[in-house]
């Protein structure tokens, strides 16, 4: 109980520190501006497919700015405490290093949750408003009712959040042994790019005739998560994915985040503060 309490206190403090960072305000504002701005791009688009454009913009903003937030927030909040030696003061208290790491991760997770929920709700409001207008203007295109699957938008937002948690965990893992914030942040963005190309690498090593290449390639490739599967609910018109698929994505995300977090605890436990 005391352990959970301490983790909660550290998470709350991390969230509070994040809420005061101007860079994070800027990232969040840009994401909101993009979603709202997309609403005024409609003159360039045509009819009902405009809703797809709005949803793409919203989920794209959530993915892009969310990734920037996950990486920079994790790197900055972690290294700020080390550089200002507030970590020394905290860790000289009856606080385990694992609690410190979990507190940081949960704090960043809370920040990302707030970001994703707010952006998903804004996106739903924008889509709903525009769809209502289009239903008036183009009734024949909406003869079967609303086209946007709003539950799907929420689910896509939830899976984006899980992806961002995985990204934050991996950035935290790098930060746990890295000597500079810059390195951690650059590594975070590299992991993001690799994660989005993972499916290509999977296909490449799976096609190899050599068992050794398949095994080695598999181990190397698997060191990075594949982010494509977190977009399983992104298609606006594809309907909700199967429950088993969602469960797999959640298990996959939590598994990666858990392993990265456990390794970050292991690595940070050996770090000289």
């Amino acid at each position: 109980m005391a352990v959970l309490q301490r983790i909660g206190i550290l998470a709350h403090n991390t969230l509070r520190a994040a809420a005061r960072q101007r860079l994070f305000h800027l990232i969040i504002l840009l994401a909101f501006a993009l979603v709202l701005g997309a609403r005024w791009f409609r003159e360039f688009n045509f009819g009902a497919p405009e809703l797809k454009f709005l949803a793409d913009c919203g989920l794209g903003a959530m993915g892009f700015f969310g990734a920037a937030l996950a990486i920079t927030a994790t790197g900055q909040l972690f290294f700020h405490e080390l550089e200002t030696r507030t970590a020394q003061t905290i860790l000289a208290k009856p606080v385990r290093r694992s609690e410190f790491i979990l507190g940081k991760l949960l704090g960043v997770g809370g920040l990302l949750l707030g970001f994703c929920v707010a952006l998903a709700l804004l996106l739903i409001a924008v889509l709903w408003s525009r769809e209502s207008e289009l239903m008036q203007q183009l009734p024949e295109a909406f003869e079967n009712g609303r086209q946007v699957n709003y539950a799907g938008v929420l689910l896509a937002g939830a899976l984006q959040w899980l992806k961002l948690i995985v990204l934050a965990s991996l950035t935290l893992l790098v930060a746990s042994f890295a000597q500079s914030q810059l390195f951690s942040v650059l590594a975070g963005f590299a992991i993001l790019a690799i994660g989005h190309l993972q499916h290509l690498a999977h296909d490449a090593y799976r096609r190899s005739a050599s068992a050794a290449v398949r095994l080695l390639g598999g181990a190397v490739v698997s060191a990075f998560p594949r982010f494509d599967i977190f977009g399983v609910a992104d298609g606006l018109d594809a309907g909700l994915p199967a429950g088993s698929d969602i469960a797999r994505v959640v298990a996959y995300g939590l598994g990666y985040a858990g392993i990265a977090c456990a390794l970050a605890i292991f690595s940070f436990g050996r770090r000289e503060i």
Binding site: F177, S222, G231, G255, I259
Partner: peptide, 27 residues
């Protein structure tokens, strides 16, 4: 230690690949 971390990540990710692959294949 970085190599050890990479190795553990690789092995654990290899195990998790079985969880994510069916979804990746469906996509």
């Amino acid at each position: 230690m970085v190599i050890a971390i990479g190795l553990v990540m690789g092995l654990a990710g290899f195990a998790l690949d079985g969880v994510g692959e069916p979804v990746g294949a469906a996509i």
